[in-house]
């Protein structure tokens, strides 16, 4: 197993190197003179020159790249212009909010999409199959910002069931003591059910918005994979052996069907991580997406660069996790490597 993880990491390495190079190049592609940017509008020419030297911008491109890699290795992602704080610290402080939201959305989507896909495949042509097709087609066409806003309008404005879309907690509540950074978990650790409920209420709409968007691909993949597996030779053997329907469906069919579903989760993660920005904007969610967005709009590039790097690293890690899970389920991968 460890060998397999090592191998996967080796496969991922060129991608990681590519990510670092691209982020570096994007940084250099910044319009205008970065030194003038950092120095601010009132700076003298001399001050700008000083900053240029300090930033290493007077050196050759390869040298600059070496410096960039060295800083990365030390965990230095630069400082934010607007707040003057180190970017890494700010990103890490906001990461739990984004992760909590993303994971909840993923859990919700999987919890709905897997049963839908399974039932649709187990009973082709039934109402649940048709429902799944409608959801899949509609889900692929929904602009996520549109669904988010509609949910806000219906559940906050019309029905008054949801709290206003203003972040992780309403302004009067105080955040739980930070242990994991995820409010749902921290509030429980504090033994404060009221706080848990307050943050859960805030979570519902953004989770639904994100979850509904990724439900469709997961359901489609589950349905297709289950259909493939159900008509396979080994399922016929299993049925010929008179195994119970539950064993057939869950032990034999589902475990095999999970493999392609797991593979397709890579695309789902790519989507989830990207579209976080949109949801965080709608719900004023203080995650890294909205942080990066503020930075982009303020032309503050260091946070944006840190954000892109962090997202890409997260994505690499998640893909690694998918590979490991795949190996756990599929002996053909586990044993052959």
């Amino acid at each position: 197993m460890l060998r397999m993880i090592g191998r996967r990491l080796a496969i991922a390495t060129p991608g990681i190197i590519g990510v670092i190079v691209v982020t570096f190049l994007l940084n250099r592609a910044l319009p205008g003179d970065p030194a003038a940017y950092f120095a601010g509008p009132a700076a003298t020419r001399q001050a700008i020159e000083e900053i240029r030297v300090k930033l290493g911008l007077d050196r050759s491109l390869p040298e600059q790249f070496a410096l960039f890699v060295r800083d990365l290795a030390r965990g230095e992602l630069g400082t934010s212009l607007t707040s003057g704080q180190p970017v890494l610290a700010e990103l890490l402080a906001r990461l739990p909010a984004s992760l909590e939201l993303t994971l909840c959305a993923l859990l919700f989507a999987v919890a709905v999409a897997l049963p839908l896909g399974i039932l649709a495949a187990a009973r082709p042509g039934s109402w649940i199959d048709h429902l799944t097709r409608v959801i899949v087609t509609a889900g692929n066409s929904l602009p996520i910002f549109f669904t988010g806003l509609l949910l806000v309008y219906v559940f906050y404005y019309l029905l008054g069931l949801a709290p206003p879309p203003l972040g992780r907690l309403d302004p009067f509540a105080s955040a739980p003591r930070t242990v994991t950074g995820a409010y749902l978990i921290d509030s429980l650790l504090m033994g404060d059910p009221a706080l848990f409920w307050a943050s859960a209420r805030q979570m519902i709409l953004p989770t639904l918005t994100l979850g509904v968007a990724v439900l469709a691909p997961i359901a489609r993949m589950t349905r297709a994979a289950m259909l493939g597996v159900l008509s396979s030779d080994f399922m016929r053997t299993a049925r010929a052996s008179g195994l119970s329907p539950a064993t057939l469906l869950y032990v034999y069919a589902l475990r095999n069907a999970l493999l392609p579903v797991l593979t397709s989760l890579g695309g789902v993660f790519s989507f989830l991580l990207g579209v976080n920005v949109v949801v965080e904007k709608i719900f004023a969610w203080p995650g890294i997406g909205s942080y990066a967005l503020e930075a982009v709009l303020a032309s503050d590039y260091a946070p944006v660069q840190g954000y892109v790097l962090m997202m890409a690293s997260l994505y690499v890690l998640l893909n690694l996790l998918i590979d490991v899970l795949y190996g756990v389920i599929d002996p053909r991968i586990r044993i052959e490597t």
């Binding site: 030779d233 080994f234 299993a238 010929a240 052996s241 195994l243």
Partner: peptide
């Protein structure tokens, strides 16, 4: 099925569950 009336198939390597140990598959029956 499997109790009084059984069937075996062609191409046995694909007729067995690829990700379950073969002993377990017998044990299931």
């Amino acid at each position: 099925r499997g109790r009084e009336l059984s069937m075996i198939f062609q191409s046995p390597r694909t007729a067995l569950n690829p990700i379950r140990p073969v002993g377990k598959q017998i044990e299931d029956v």
